[in-house]
């Protein structure tokens, strides 16, 4: 599995470069411009052909990479912060009223079907462009919180937290100085998983018409593709599928490997595997 160890990060880096280039305006600026005829075949002008309106499909797929990263990074960062904090607090005060309240909140959110929840948030915000992002953050923190809570309880039993408390550290200091450094690997793996999940969710939501607005995304491309294939046009579908699949697959593998490599309990197992 050494090959996987290198390929997955390399693919992710390639996507990052594509996204940064879009942000800096280096390429894919003209994803909305009509530069060709309707459904032009792949050529040197349009490497992956054009869509129904005559827009370049490759440019659209590359520009959508930036959209995917915007959604994935924002949701992963915010839900890791919320989930990490609430999970650590719940774990530290395990069994208290506060713990019960956080668990109740988590259970309640998990009980609402995700796409319905996004729809309800979009409804409440009356179609605000960030409704989808907000809904994802509110839903995705719960998994992170559950993992962090369990890990905090485990750490709490090992005694050093009690020692820090006895030494006069405040709860805030215990969380920042003693818990967070030991939870970093858990948070990093969870954030990667949320990043992937957010990108997958965006595709479904945009496909349904309640996701990305006034921009370009792989989900919007697939929504177009659903119509295109009835007319025998497959380039939109192939482009969006390949871009989406590559990032999700690389992200999932990366999370898998990080979980094994970064966890102190399995880190050495990996070393012996190599020998």
């Amino acid at each position: 599995m050494v090959v996987v160890d290198w390929i997955a990060p390399l693919i992710v880096v390639a996507y990052v470069i594509a996204a940064v280039g879009v942000w800096l305006g280096l390429w894919a600026d003209g994803w909305g411009e009509i530069t060709g005829v309707m459904w032009a075949a792949p050529s040197t002008d349009h490497w992956l052909g054009t869509n129904r309106l005559g827009q370049d499909i490759l440019l659209r797929a590359v520009a959508a990479t930036a959209t995917a990263f915007e959604i994935g990074l924002l949701v992963a960062l915010a839900s890791s912060m919320v989930g990490g904090l609430l999970g650590a607090v719940a774990g530290l005060f395990n069994g208290s009223r506060l713990d019960e309240l956080i668990l109740w909140l988590k259970g309640t959110i998990d009980a609402i079907p995700f796409y319905l929840f996004v729809a309800a948030v979009a409804f409440a915000l009356q179609g605000h462009a960030m409704a989808m992002h907000l809904a994802m953050i509110v839903v995705f923190w719960t998994t992170t919180a559950r993992v962090v809570r369990a890990e905090t309880i485990r750490l709490g039993q090992s005694g050093f937290i009690e020692a820090a408390r006895a030494g006069g550290s405040t709860h805030a200091r215990v969380i920042v100085r003693h818990l967070l450094p030991n939870l970093a690997h858990v948070l990093l793996v969870q954030a990667t998983l949320v990043f992937v999940a957010a990108i997958k969710a965006e595709v479904v939501l945009s496909f349904l018409g309640i996701g990305v607005q006034d921009s370009i995304s792989w989900g919007l491309m697939l929504a177009e593709a659903g119509q295109d294939i009835m007319a025998g046009q497959y380039m939109n579908f192939l482009a969006a599928t390949l871009f989406l699949f590559g990032l999700v697959m690389a992200g999932s593998l990366l999370a898998d490997r990080m979980q094994i490599r970064l966890d102190p309990r399995t880190r050495n197992q990996w070393r012996t595997q190599i020998q």
């Binding site: 595709v203 479904v204 496909f207 697939l222 699949f245 999700v248």
Partner: peptide, 10 residues
């Protein structure tokens, strides 16, 4: 796992 439901349907 990496294939979106949307891709499978189309």
């Amino acid at each position: 796992m990496s294939l979106s439901f949307v891709i499978i349907i189309i």
